[in-house]
């Protein structure tokens, strides 16, 4: 008798545990709903892969690295009042497929949202922070304190010299080179944020193939990056 009762109690306990977990997830989701924001890089309208050759007319391009920080995802209502900000920092890395999808806490009343490409000055002067901000991620300038906001490296035969390497490490958190850029997404239900490499590379010339410190050229490239983003459902 007691054996049967014990089995019954154990079964009830088992289902009760799952029921509690279900309730917890259900309420958490409704209290703090989340949505995926997906980053993509495209070349000729297809998802870009690292170390693969792509062509635009007579030139070839081979992307070696593409990493950038996304921070300060902010949601606004119809009147453009900010109603919620996700204060997490995300490191998006084409070499890490998991990092391309950001699970951001959303506000259902919002109509549009924005995100920052890069990091603000407070983060840049806060010392060691760990996580996505760990210098081990290769996004920190040790020799001149500050985070690299956007890193893109590729090879191409587009310049008539022996150097086929392009290395752009873009950052800077104080004047005159405040490198963080805000990107506005005008509709909240748009979740695919696409960095169009055709658009970006079309505007790149050969006058400077390396940018590895805050600079005016770096600022111009960052403006071009913002313009190269497209938004799709």
């Amino acid at each position: 008798m007691s054996n049967k009762f014990e089995k019954f109690a154990a079964t009830c306990g088992f289902f009760f545990k799952y029921f509690i977990s279900f309730l917890f997830i259900f309420f958490t989701y409704n209290l703090f709903p989340q949505e995926n924001i997906e980053f993509q890089a495209t070349f000729n309208n297809e998802a870009t892969k690292l170390n693969k050759n792509y062509s635009i007319r007579k030139y070839h391009f081979n992307i070696k690295k593409l990493k950038f920080y996304v921070s300060n995802i902010s949601y606004y209502n119809r009147k453009n009042d900010e109603i919620f900000t996700d204060e997490k920092v995300y490191l998006v890395d084409l070499n890490n497929p998991k990092s391309l999808k950001i699970k951001s806490q959303i506000n259902k009343k919002s109509q549009l949202y924005s995100f920052d490409l890069g990091l603000d000055s407070v983060i840049n002067v806060s010392g060691s922070l760990g996580g996505a901000l760990d210098p081990i991620e290769g996004m920190y300038w040790a020799w001149q304190s500050g985070y690299i906001n956007f890193k893109i490296e590729w090879e191409s035969n587009m310049c008539s010299n022996d150097n086929n390497q392009f290395i752009f490490h873009l950052g800077g958190y104080k004047k005159p080179y405040y490198n963080k850029r805000t990107v506005l997404v005008k509709k909240r239900h748009i979740h695919r944020l696409i960095f169009n490499l055709n658009k970006f590379l079309k505007k790149i010339n050969c006058d400077r193939q390396m940018i590895m410190s805050p600079s005016l050229k770096g600022e111009n490239i960052s403006n071009l990056i913002v313009k190269s983003f497209e938004f799709k459902k």
Binding site: V125, P135, I136, A142, S145
Partner: peptide, 28 residues
């Protein structure tokens, strides 16, 4: 004044090729 925080200062000698010449991965 290249380094803006004490916590980040030791990154310079650890990774400088003229000083300790190490990588952060190898250090860990």
């Amino acid at each position: 004044g290249a380094v803006n925080h004490l916590d980040m200062q030791s990154l310079v000698p650890i990774t400088d090729s003229l000083e300790m010449g190490n990588s952060l991965d190898n250090l860990l």
